[in-house]
Structure formats: C-alpha cells, structure tokens
Design a protein around this nucleic acid. Structure first.
Length: 423
DNA sequence: TTTCCACAGGAAGGTACGGTCT
DNA sequence: AGACCGTACCTTCCTGTGGAAA
C-alpha cells in the first residue's frame, strides 16, 4: 500500500490559483488599444445616458472576457461613486443555442430562486413579457453581457428585441444595453441586417496574441504564481510558442504553464523545465480528445469506432460511404438500427470540427466523383481507450485487435473476448 | 468544352419528450 | 385531460459541386 498521508508539496508555487481562468489580474497586459475603445464605448453609462450596444469579437483566449470583467468591475465602482444606478447581468451562452433559451435564463437570473420558470412550455411572447417586467422592476441602467453569443447561430431575435424594447414601449424605466461577446469572427456578418445595425453600434476586435504578447501575459501571471527561480528560463518562451500555435490562445497557454508546474511538482523537481512543458502539452492534448470522445452520443461513437477500425488496418483515409458501410456492420453486432447515411455524414463533420478526425475533400472527376476522406487525427490507442465502454458492449473488431492487445489501459468484461471478424 | 460521378449538405417535415395553461 | 409550446434528433428528398475523363 502506498503512503497515503498528506504533506504540503514542495513549493514551486507562490499562488497557484492565479493561473486559473477565473482569476482577474489587477492589470490587463497588451490590450491597451482594445481597452481604450471599450472604455470609450462604456462612457455613456457613467453620464447616465442610454448605454451603447457593444460587440466584442476575437478568437478564444484573447482577453475578451477578462477585459470585460476588468472594465465592468471598474465601471460598477465608479457608478457607485457618481450615483448612477447600474446593474450588470452576465450570461454565458455556452449551452444555449436559441434566443428563447437566453430569454428564459435572463428571466431566471433576475427572479427570486423560488420563482423560476421552466425552460420549455411557455409561448415565446410570454417569456419576453416576463423579461420586460423584470428589467423594468430592476430599473436604472442595465448592461446585459452575453458571452459566447455566437452559439445562438441563426436565431438572433433576442438581439433585436432587447435593444428595441424601450422604443417599442415594452419597458419604460430601464435603460438596457447589450454587450455581445463572440468567438466566431464570421458571426457578425451572419447576423440579420437589423440586428447588426443595433447590436454593433460599437464593435471592438480583439486580435490573437502573438508569441511576444503571450509571453508578457504569462510573465505577469508567473510572477505572482511562482516563486523566484522556480521556472527555468526557456519555460515561458516555450509555453508562449505553443500558445501562438493554438491561435494565440492565452487561456490554453496558462493551462499549459500550470500543468507543467504540476508535473514538475509531482516529480519533486527544483525547477519547471522545458521537458515538463512538453509532457504537459501531451497530457492536455490527450485529455482534450478523451473528453471530446466521451461526450459523444452512442451512434457518434459507433461512427468513430468504424473509422478507427480502418485506422487499425492502415487503410485510412477512407470515404464517408466506406465508413458508413462498416458503421452498419457494427450496428448489426449489437442489434441496433443504423441511422441514415445522411446523419452519419453530419457526425463525420462534427468529429472533424471537434478535431478528433481530419477531413479532406477529394474529387476524382468522372471516375470517382466528389467526396470526403476521413482519418483519425490522434493516436489510435487514445481513441480506443476513450471508447472503452462502447467497445465493451459492441465487441472488439478485428481491425483494432492488435492495438487492443498491446494496450494495458483497456478494461473489458470477459465475454468481450470474441473478435468481430471483418466481413 | 462538355459530361457526369458520388457524394455534400440544405430544406422540410416527422416524432417523442418535457413542459405550461385552462 | 387535452390543447398548446419549444427543442432534440432523425429521415427523406433533392439540388449543388468541381475536376478527371471523354
């Protein structure tokens, strides 16, 4: 039995918590022009005027949310000082893809916990009525921050309902402004014309960090998170370089730094080294794929399983219809009705969007026609381990037998020993 | 230059489900 | 109870695509 007593770790860290996303630093590094524009756009609030609608856009991890939290905290403090009645509602639209759902969430966040409404069942107009009532009873100036609004896709009705609520006399006392934050750069262009004109009164673009910018961000956090000398000098440049590869995502770079720190600490190292960063990168990448796969529905996993068998047979890349044929075979083994080929094409696209697989368009003209080729983007064993449960119920296909036998991470119930042979 | 393969993926509609309201 | 509401998840049908071959 291992020693399970707990002792404080050796201390590379001064304050590890500051490496998490939810930590708001006291200053924002390298976003001066954006902060200036943002500041200017918020100015009407403090004058007691109708707030502008503001639209922020830029890729993930470029400081949009951090800048928002930072500036709005400041704005609230200043509003207090100048007797401006200001309320801020922050809503992350991550799991909301309809205007209706956002409206419900907003109503619920304004209502007492004992008086919540359910997410379905109400007619749309009712939900909006509730929302106007709640906004009016709050009164004053209200800023509604919708983070990751691009999730609502086509259905942008709430984005023109709210800005127009006052002129349409749905609300009378409150002055409402929207701050929309989008990770999708094309979202703005896809908005309907009437929404674009009202929501994007002030549009602020956050460009990705370059490696130097990232290094400044990392340095700021590392100074408060680690003790002096805890990082060897190539650690931050390396994290920054990886981060720049990941579309200038500062959040990922911070995660990487923290993971590297954790690995170094677990290994009782005196210093975080470049090698720890490399290990951390592998570990994070692997976790990302594993989580992505674990969240897939059964038939999505079956689709991936089908593709994985070809990978095991060294036959990738393969066309969508080839994957579909094997998918149907796999369905046969568990006596499940296969979904339509059309549906599987959707799944294959989703898998590619999640970066679990790679998809390449092919065109062989008259002889072969136009189609997509698919292959795994990650180590086959990783994918198989992530689908362990599914494979346990379906059985081990011959194509992946070799990998399964070589792996020591897989756990199967004894009756899955039988191999599904290739048709 | 024209043809045409083999899908890609949009559109529309069905069904089941969890909900409200009267 | 039964009308009605919004959504997730599918299917069916069908038009569009682009480059190798003719």
């Amino acid at each position: 039995m291992p020693d399970i007593s707990f002792t404080p770790d050796n201390d590379l860290y001064k304050d590890r918590d500051t490496l998490f996303e939810d930590y708001t630093p006291t200053t924002i590094v390298g976003r001066d022009t954006e902060l200036e524009q943002y500041h200017e756009a918020l100015q009407p609030v403090i004058n007691g005027e109708r707030p502008s609608n503001i639209f922020l856009y830029g890729k993930t991890g470029v400081g949009k949310t951090a800048a928002t939290k930072f500036l709005l905290d400041q704005l609230k403090a200043d509003a207090d000082q100048y007797d401006v009645d200001l309320s801020v509602i922050y809503l992350n639209c991550e799991d909301l893809n309809k205007s209706y759902q956002i409206a419900v969430k907003l109503v619920n966040s304004l209502r007492d916990p004992s008086d919540q409404i359910s997410e379905t069942g109400h007619p749309t107009y009712k939900v909006y009525e509730y929302l106007w009532q709640e906004l009016d009873s709050v009164g004053g100036t209200i800023l509604i921050v919708l983070d990751e609004v691009d999730n609502i896709g086509e259905d942008d009705s709430i984005l023109y309902q709210i800005p127009r609520a006052r002129s349409n006399e749905h609300i009378s006392t409150a002055k409402v402004g929207i701050v929309g934050i989008s990770n999708d750069l094309s979202f703005r262009d896809n908005l309907s014309a009437k929404v674009r004109s009202s929501l994007c009164e002030k549009a602020i673009s956050f460009p990705p960090y370059d490696a130097t910018g990232l290094q400044d961000v990392l340095q700021q956090r590392a100074d408060i998170a680690f003790h002096d000398g805890a990082l060897s000098e190539d650690v931050l440049p390396l994290c920054a370089a990886y981060g720049a590869q990941d579309a200038g995502d500062a959040r990922k770079a911070l995660d990487l730094l923290r993971e590297a720190g954790d690995i170094a600490r677990a290994g009782d190292a005196d210093q975080v080294e470049a090698d720890h960063v490399k290990q951390a990168r592998q570990k994070l990448e692997r976790e990302e794929v594993m989580d992505g796969i674990a969240d897939l529905a059964e038939h999505q996993q079956l689709t991936l399983y089908a593709l994985a068998t070809f990978e095991g047979e060294d036959e990738t890349p393969v066309s969508s219809s080839t994957v579909y044929d094997r998918y149907q075979d796999l369905c046969g083994f568990i006596g499940s009705d296969p979904l339509s080929a059309r549906r599987i094409r959707d799944f294959l696209k989703e898998l590619a969007d999640l970066s679990i697989t790679a998809r390449t368009p092919q065109n062989e003209g008259l002889s072969g026609g136009k189609y997509h080729n698919h292959e795994l983007k990650h180590n086959l064993e990783t994918v198989i381990v992530a689908m362990n449960d599914l494979i346990d119920t379906v059985g081990i296909h011959e194509g992946i037998r070799e990998v399964v036998e070589a792996s020591d991470e897989l756990v199967f119930s004894s009756d899955v020993e039988a191999t599904i042979s290739k048709k």
